[in-house]
Design a protein around this nucleic acid. Sequence first.
RNA 1: UCCCCGAUAGCUCAAUGGUAGAGCGAGCGGCUGUUAACCGCUAGGUUGCUGGUUCGAGUCCAGCUCGGGGAGCCA
Length: 465
Amino acid sequence: MGWVKVRDALAGEVGSELTLRGWVRTRRDSKADGGMSFIQLHDGTCFDPIQVVARHDLPNYDEVSRLTSGCSIEVEGRLVESQGKGQAVEVEAHAVRVVGWVQDPDTYPVPAKRHTFEYLREQAHLRVRTNTFSAMARVRHRLAMAIHRFFDERDFFWVHTPIITASDAEGAGQMFRVSTLDLLNLPRTPEGEVDFSQDFFGRPAYLTVSGQLEVETYCCAMSRVYTFGPTFRAENSNTARHLAEFWMVEPEIAFADLADNAQLGEDMLRFVLDDLLTHRADDMAFFDLRIERGLIDRLRHIIETPFRRISYTDAIEVLRKSGKDFEYPVEWGRDLQTEHERYLTEEHFRQPVVVTDYPKEIKAFYMRLNDDGRTVAGMDVLVPRIGEIIGGSQREERLDVLDARIREMGLDPEGYWWYRDLRRYGTVPHAGFGLGFERLLLLATGMQNIRDVIPFPRAPKQCEF
RNA sequence: UCCCCGAUAGCUCAAUGGUAGAGCGAGCGGCUGUUAACCGCUAGGUUGCUGGUUCGAGUCCAGCUCGGGGAGCCA
């Protein structure tokens, strides 16, 4: 007899014999009919546990009556219509085998009771046994698969860009160093500097902060590509929206401009959120009920309403005319602050907003210079509550303009020789963006802290698991 | 990194500078086709760490560690 998943058992044929394996969520006893226990069993395959009815005449009923939250068991039984309320079907057990006991129920870290997310972060190895985190695991998987499906259906190729990079000036933040040198006995050059020629790669190396530069090379041959992998930032950020290790989705499209790019980002968000609501309705109902009331309606609104497009220059005007007393000044040339983004997307437009064409001084060197000479073809997609969820641009495809921009930023064009080669050999207009996957999960689930949407969060002073 | 708040039972929190408590969870019993069950009983504590003030510190002071909220950096 095969092992049936709880998800399939709940939808199974009444009268069928089956074997279930999983973990006890709760056990309740009744003295009716000589005594019986009701076991809520889950195996992670769906939100709802299945009810197992174990009667007193089971040979090991003394064991069954000692089962506690967290015990692992194997159940053989028959799927029957439930006599009680709360579930359509249940399993009448012929046999219950205890696979693993909980050694000390009194100190089991995640009994079936309310826990704070702060506490569960300290029990990251066990928190996935709770409703919220198992739902999160399924939603995270579904969204990741939806992203792959979205791109696959549109002839994008998934490119595995490197995790380790030697580019130390991608302009996207502080980097983690990768080295095999002995920190207690560093080799030195005659000048007293660290001699990286003796390091593993013969030069300084780091964990990637973005796969963009590498994926552009594939874009300029494969036309439509994307990366989806881990990304690392060594900033000392202590917020509910930042991680030191997070996952980023970075599509790159050839023969495309900023408008194509914005449309791609909008289409992708709409596709994956719709897919999620359709295929993980059970988990999303939970998030809607217990995490953020009205979540599903808000996601539907995002799916059904075209995103607003506004230039940075116009956005500045909106902010100036808002009458709001912002903590940070609103002035053309300054980057939008969190309070500005929130006003635009939560109060003024009340929907996702694509802000485009930023002053060149506040954006990266690779963004395409607009004809006005003072703005670049960059874009940020802002969403309520989260802020920036996507950042992207049309890339500068003109070699002379690119070189000038690199020098303006105080960087050395030689360090980008292979990136510049793309502009020397058959250059094309192209564009792309980066989507913070965990920020998408915040949006999709209503969770407040980004450390609760990734299995094992890495943040300053947080690397226990 | 900056500002604010916090750390007491397995968890969530009380406790005027003077005998450390409750709810939940756990264990035992009662009741019940149970399902946020309900009723009774029981166990459970080096009050984050180090030092200081005091006759006396969970409580006041200083430093440190860790956590939370906000901001910056950024996805």
